[in-house]
Design a protein around this nucleic acid. Structure first.
Ligand SMILES: [Mn+2]
Ligand SMILES: [Mn+2]
Ligand SMILES: [Mn+2]
Ligand SMILES: [Mn+2]
Lengths: 223, 223
DNA sequence: TATATAATTTAGCCATGCCTAAATTAGTTT
DNA sequence: AAACTAATTTAGGCATGGCTAAATTATATA
């Protein structure tokens, strides 16, 4: 078994390489809130374990073995988030930190039991996909809310789960995954979004909108 | 926050000093499956943190601060065992190892939510008392099954939870806490116990009987 | 093409928590 | 009282995973 630290590195490399191929040790260090020298050190260890491809100054990528472990940990994390949310009522801005610690520690048996209890779910409380038992991820092609135009109708697909204050804020507008809304107005000059959620008019700043991902819907009212 | 290792040491010192006052570093090392030198090292660290009283060659005891932490971890452990057993159906011979890892990692919030879900329970699946939120333990005065005489009726109160093969064995006789049985015969010369559980006749070896603790009941059939 | 800048790596250090082997102490036996 | 034995502690080492400071390399700029 790997150490918690190694698992977190693999998970982070996976996430970073999803949006941008090779991952520099600097970016990795920043993401993990660690100094670059520490990231370099761990990456070298992961290389000797053949979990990572790495050449100095050239960045890191996961091998198939490394990716499998990363997905396993991500599966733990997201199942745990949903389990804590659903079974114990932990608020959606609290589940991330809790899962961050538990993910390294639960057995495959408990993983399977949570999966069954939850009915083999495919997304966590923030809308992120839960890799299946074999590490297969079904991605949805959601777009950032900031790409929306006036009048567009859509459904919230996913929300960034890193910042719990942000989640509380987004939750206060009821913008959970699955919630439908339509854009009333996008203010010019990088301005805020005015939207309609279930008849309620709400203003969402651009920085917040960047963290919200949606699926467009054909709006029958708007033809 | 303490390290996992330090928490496990405090928990172990607590359990060992329950039956026998001061705890030697040797006993502690054996209990934790660690070399005596390692136990001495950790005990010195715990002393600088004022969690433990210790003088070389003289044994260790917990301070009030150390005892409070030990009880907090024991509470986590036992609540987790019962939660895993009740909510996720983890078999009673599996909950100990799982809880051993989770106990260091759950938040006070999750602790409180499990407690509520379980209806503020007072015993874990093996019958061990769960300290309350303030660290108060309500001990029961159970006796080892080996103290029973022929004809005695009793109820299982508690079973050792260290050895999971033993638990499977005991479970195969349905000797869970709460189960009533009566002694048919105690074979002489340190022999086995023949007992009656719900009409079924079962033979229990002495080594197993030592690990089972019971409460005597006045048996109306036997007057 | 040379040089400046920024990123990355190396070197060396620290804390934790384990280990083995050697030294010390306590307690018991003669 | 001395000697022996068993328990305990000390000394020194190793792996992990951080850190800082200095050296190196890549890249952009002149
Ligand atoms: Mn983690
Ligand atoms: Mn999430
Ligand atoms: Mn533990
Ligand atoms: Mn137990």
């Amino acid at each position: 078994m790997l150490t918690h630290a190694a698992e977190d590195y693999l998970k982070s490399i996976y996430k970073l390489q999803e949006k941008g191929g090779k991952v520099s040790t600097g970016i990795l260090a920043e993401y993990l809130d660690v100094k670059p020298a520490s990231a370099t050190g761990m990456v070298k260890k992961l290389k000797t374990m053949k979990l990572v491809r790495y050449e100095r100054y050239r960045g890191v990528t996961l091998t198939d073995a490394g990716k499998a472990i990363a997905l396993e940990i991500i599966r733990h994390h997201r199942l745990l988030e949903l389990y804590l949310f659903t079974a114990l009522g932990v608020p959606w801005d609290g589940v991330h930190d809790e899962a961050e610690k538990l993910e390294h520690v639960i057995s495959e048996d408990v993983e399977a039991r949570m999966d069954e209890f939850l009915g083999y779910p495919t997304a966590d409380p923030h809308g992120a996909p839960i890799p299946d038992k074999n590490g297969v991820v079904t991605r949805t092609a959601s777009i950032p809310m900031t790409d929306l135009q006036d009048g567009q109708s859509c459904v919230v697909a996913e929300v960034s789960d890193n910042d719990s204050a942000l989640l509380r804020h987004i939750g206060s507008f009821n913008l959970y995954p699955g919630t439908a809304f339509s854009v009333i107005e996008v203010a010019p000059f990088e301005g805020p979004f005015t939207i309609d959620i279930a008849g309620q008019q709400v203003v969402i700043g651009r920085e917040v909108a960047k963290q919200i991902f949606v699926d467009k819907v054909q709006d029958p009212d708007n033809v």
